[in-house]
Design a protein around this nucleic acid. Sequence first.
RNA 1: GCCGGCGUAGCUCAAUUGGCAGAGCAGCUGACUUGUAAUCAGCAGGUUGCGGGUUCGAGUCCCAUCGUCGGCUCCA
Length: 635
Amino acid sequence: MIDLKLPDGKVINIEKGATVLDAAQKIGPGLAKAALAGKINGHLIDLRAPVNESASLEIVTGKSPEAPEVFRHSMAHIMAEAILQLFPEAQFGIGPAIENGFYYDFLLPRALTTEDLETVEEKMKEVIAKRLPFVRREVSKEEALKMFKELNQPFKLELIEELEDQTITVYSQGKFVDLCRGPHVPDSGAVKNFKLLSIAGAYWRGDEKRPMLQRIYGTAFASKEELKEHLDRLEEAKKRDHRKLGKELDLFSTQEEVGPGLVFWHPNGARIRHTIETFWKEMHYKNGYELMYTPHIGQSWLWETSGHLDFYKESMYSPMEIDGSDYFIKPMNCPFHIMIYKSKVRSYRDLPLRWAELGTVYRYEKSGVLHGLLRVRGFTQDDAHIICTPEQIEDEIREVLRFSLSLWKAFGFSSIKAYLATRPAKAVGDENRWNQAIEALNRAVVAEGLDCEVDDGGGAFYGPKIDLKIKDAIGREWQMTTIQFDFNLPERFDMTYVGSDGNRHRPYMVHRALLGSIERFFGVLIEHYGGAMPVWLAPVQARVLPISDRQADYARLVQKQMREAGIRVELDDRSDKIGYRVRQAQLEKVPFMIILGEQECESSTVTVRLRNGDNLNQVKLEDFIREQEWKKTSA
RNA sequence: GCCGGCGUAGCUCAAUUGGCAGAGCAGCUGACUUGUAAUCAGCAGGUUGCGGGUUCGAGUCCCAUCGUCGGCUCCA
């Protein structure tokens, strides 16, 4: 007999070699029925796996946090079996569980269509109905190689050959056999709430030189309700798509005749951008930054010195020749800021320098990766460089982080997580500096009470960094802020300052972009608010709607007063019915509709319709103006 | 860049097996003077992304190209 310690502290005894399912049975038949897998000493294992020694045991049910990974992975196998039935000659790549779902990569004799998804789904339902057991087997490496050779599965052979272990586990259900570590649900009937979502091309092992496989993405959840919730979320995301809203609200466009990835800001979008940038500039001045403007192009010397022409050239636009010299359009602002730094001798008394610029850069992005405002070829970074002494670095980092958080709060984002990336194997800069930098980043995160994940060795070769990911209104994470040390450029450009000892020293340099780029930020902002911008950002904050011509004079007076109060206000006195004009303002997501009829005219008041349909009935205009936040003041 | 889908009026979308390119909204003109998400009538709007080809005939089929969408990859 062996002891199994349960999560609640209780200990049960089972026979050595009994299965997890036996143990679950012993705890309770209800639990055994709901069980999907087990967890022995923290490791996920099959329900039918034998337990040979005393350990801690947890039964994984549909409600466990580990469950989705297990049943989604099983779902991928079920899909693979469906594909095998439809295409007996199919070759299989990999099929893992992913966030919210699963996928599997196949090499098939023909391209799949969206109709095929339904066929595959039907087949999967058949497989599920059969409740085929997932059978785990351990075989020797040679045996495995022989097995998958017979099955004509070259991708699997490649994977097996790379495995170090001499014992290989394979899982099978029905006719489908797969190389797999497991665990899986006990049988194919254990999970049925799924939907196939899309087909996509995917290179074998992500390598563009290897064959392109066809990937099917699907989603699966423990309950019908959760599945529906997820599908609704996808639907909601579609509604909020910034490309759709950008067109509907006339915010921006890209134009085929001009070039992909180049953004046109229409008047409405430009209004919002202007408001964002004005606020951003005020905030920077208040937080001790200086603002700068630098050129858009520079001679090749600059990019040779910075190293960009060595390792970033494929992302840069080709040079243009001017008076016999090559000029490149800038993909980054840093070399220009450095040139300002180097324009005179700097003393330790001048530091820290906080230099910011809304700098527009151009990068060549592969055509296939362009995406609305989120991935473009020309964009404006809200860039800054902090140049300081070693003694100042800690305070500076803390300050940047604090500043960043205050900016996010102002724009209505509160859920933020930090990701710290440390020194990779190949890196420049001496280790002391790296350590000091990482320390500073670490302490700043702690001081601000941020959740932080550490990516050990995930930093760039030139320095460690902190990225901030923000969560939007429907729970999606976006990587926006980056705070990045650079031990490379100060060396390459030989940046120095004169210390109190009269000697020259190398300053620290930190790149940081808080919003990231204005374009990308705008895209995220649109999706976060579903196009209904908060009042201070709305391109049109209020629209005055007189019921008939008889209120025309009063309407003009109201408009004038609001305009003089600094409000972006429009008058819509067209001879259409009020319902029509309300509808239009509503579709344009104007925050306030100022309705003026006979009654308002007589009582010298206004009635305000809000975007949510609520009314402020016959209020005094001054009171209404006073009570709203028309402009965000930089705190 | 690669794999696959899509591209018809400013927008959203129709157009049997290849057989006269159409509707709603938006726009313009006029009437209506209106109380909270669409008043009515009329007018105008197109080289079906661009270029080739097959065919008596192409929005529809084929090739190429551009753009876009879903992914892969990249994001020093």
